[in-house]
Design a protein around this nucleic acid. Structure first.
Length: 499
RNA sequence: GCGCCCAUCGUCUAUCGGACAGGACAUCAGGUUUUCAUCCUGGUAAGGGGGGUUCGACUCCCCCUGGGCGCGCCA
């Protein structure tokens, strides 16, 4: 019995990844199987080794432990898809040769137009129109040899329906005409998710694919690939999606989604993992507080319920408090030190604080904001001398967007970001910075901003920007709805598209 | 627009045809505590609507409604 979690390192480690990982690990452990970590870094533009490092760090912190993975190896490696390109190439060649896939020469412009037209016509069948599907192989070869760029697409049956089983839901039927002629190999020679995922799951002998519900509608693509290759498909089990309070799929807009945020904000890993294990799952004995070890001991995958659970920060906080209370004082001291109350962390702060200290006792209040999660300040502080409240809200939003793009979270890079914003927004850097000072430090009188943000860390810093915007919104000064949309398009034009 | 998935307290959930529908978080009230927190006691609070099946439906079936997800050379 083998399970896997297959995240792509394209951003800060997501809580949803940890959620899925935990259930995969639980299932493997419970049945004496193996649990694999595979890095799906086939998107060259968005993947980064930095994010992979962060991902592994975050999962380990939470208590996720894989038996095979890029960092520890295993019998079915490599476990990083960017190192398996020739494997995908061979497999896709085979598919083309056998007729299950075909080269497509359509330009992205044509595809875009096609999509636009279909959207306008509200066509019931969306997706690729199959223009290149009928090109003869001789003709295709000629065009490839002539140097035309192309992708490889999957040939999908025109009629009938795909029938497959989901462990929780039973039989699922999806009409084939709903399934796009999926690109399997991009023009850069990299595979897409669907191809790489199926090939690897087979080669890595994955027996149970436990993943998020968002994959149900593309499962037919995977089922088809298994059958084209003549492989036995694994058992599918689609977990419910973690939700925001408004029921939409968990997103950083409305919730902290970075695992590292929870670590830095002072959540205990065992409290977070415990809480995550309760999302859509319950033990038969009804106990809610239990360790990962206990989870793995008697995990019963069929006790998973399907309603999308709302991620409730309140209950998580209460769990966290319980875990903290059950620590002995000595253990708590240790935990605090492992967190931020340690010399290494102080050493980073001291150079900033020292010139500003009159007495030693000034240090703690001065640095307190570097240990907190949410800060207490008033809307007026945030607005500062400006009369233009909307402008402040916009600045914070733009700052958030720009900062989210930053990979190297260090002071000089942060300074560049704000300088860029000041230039584009045509305001003095100093006045542009005011709301950020308050959002990050809790006051306009504080330690230097960029250094503080660097020390605070990416996830907590970004979170504070969101807190500030929430406060503004609650006071009626926020940017939302249509205005937000307009701001976003203006932002994308002025600053370059995001993601 | 098309397809698919889902549906019990505000939230996470138990129930797998017969119970006053249970627990947890939140909330309210009371008690312990020099304050607060903890802790203890108690309370409010739920099966979306309509049809079936059945002696009997939260539970099984159908329809409606509602919510979600998907429809990229992203995963």
């Amino acid at each position: 019995m083998r399970t896997r979690v297959a995240p792509s390192p394209t951003g800060t480690p997501h809580i949803g990844t940890a959620y899925v990982a935990l259930f995969n690990q639980a299932f493997a452990r419970r049945h004496g199987g193996r649990f694999v970590l595979r890095i799906e870094d086939t998107d060259r533009t968005r993947s980064s080794p930095k994010w992979e490092v962060a991902l592994i760090e975050a999962l380990r912190w939470l208590g996720v432990a894989w038996d095979e993975g890029p960092d520890i190896g295993g019998d079915f490696g490599p476990y990083r898809q960017s190192e398996r390109l020739s494997i995908y190439r061979d497999h896709v060649d085979r598919l083309v040769k056998e007729g299950g896939a075909y080269p497509c020469f359509c330009s992205s412009e044509r595809l875009e137009e096609l999509r636009k037209r279909q959207a306008q016509e509200k066509a019931s069948i969306q997706g690729y129109d199959g223009l290149c599907a009928s090109i003869s192989s001789a003709e295709a070869k000629r065009r490839i040899d002539a140097g035309e760029t192309y992708v490889i697409r999957m040939r999908v049956p025109r009629e009938g329906e795909c029938v497959f089983r989901d462990r929780f839901r039973g039989e699922i039927r999806i009409p084939w005409n709903q399934i796009d002629h999926q690109v399997l190999m991009k023009s850069d020679g990299y595979p897409t998710y669907h191809l790489a995922n199926v090939v690897d799951d087979h080669l890595m002998r994955i027996t149970h694919v436990i993943r998020g519900e968002e994959w149900i509608s593309s499962a037919p693509k995977h089922v088809l690939l298994y059958s084209l290759f003549g492989w036995q498909p694994p058992e599918f089990a689609h977990l419910p999606l973690l939700r925001n309070p408004d029921k939409t799929k968990l997103s950083k807009r409305r919730n902290p989604t970075s695992i590292l945020y929870y670590r830095d904000a002072g959540y205990l890993p065992e409290a977070l993992s415990n809480y995550l294990c309760l999302m859509g799952y319950s033990r038969s004995d009804g106990r809610e507080i239990f360790s990962l070890r206990e989870m793995f001991e008697d995990f019963d995958i069929d006790r998973i319920s399907l309603g999308g659970p709302i991620f409730d920060l309140n209950k998580l906080a209460s769990f966290n408090a319980q875990y903290i209370r059950h620590l002995s004082p000595d253990e708590l001291v240790l935990r605090l030190a492992q967190w931020r109350l340690n010399c290494d962390y102080w050493r980073r702060i001291v150079p900033l604080a020292q010139p500003r200290l009159q007495r030693l006792g000034d240090f703690v209040p001065m640095a307190a904001f570097l240990f907190a999660d949410r800060l207490n300040y008033r809307v007026e502080d945030l607005l500062g001398p400006t009369k233009d409240q909307i402008r402040v809200a916009e600045l914070l939003k733009i700052g958030q967007w720009e900062l989210e793009k930053v990979e190297n979270w260090e002071k000089d890079r942060l300074r560049e970001v704000f300088e860029k914003i000041a230039v584009i927004e045509q305001i003095k850097l100093k006045s542009a910075l005011t709301p950020f000072f308050v959002a990050i430090c809790g006051s306009a009188v504080s330690l230097p901003l960029f250094e503080s943000m660097e020390i605070l860390g990416r996830d907590l810093s970004l979170r504070r920007l969101i807190y500030a915007q929430e406060l503004l919104l609650a006071a009626g000064h926020g940017v939302q709805g249509r205005e937000l949309k307009e701001l976003q398009s203006r932002y994308e034009r002025a600053y370059g598209a995001q993601e």
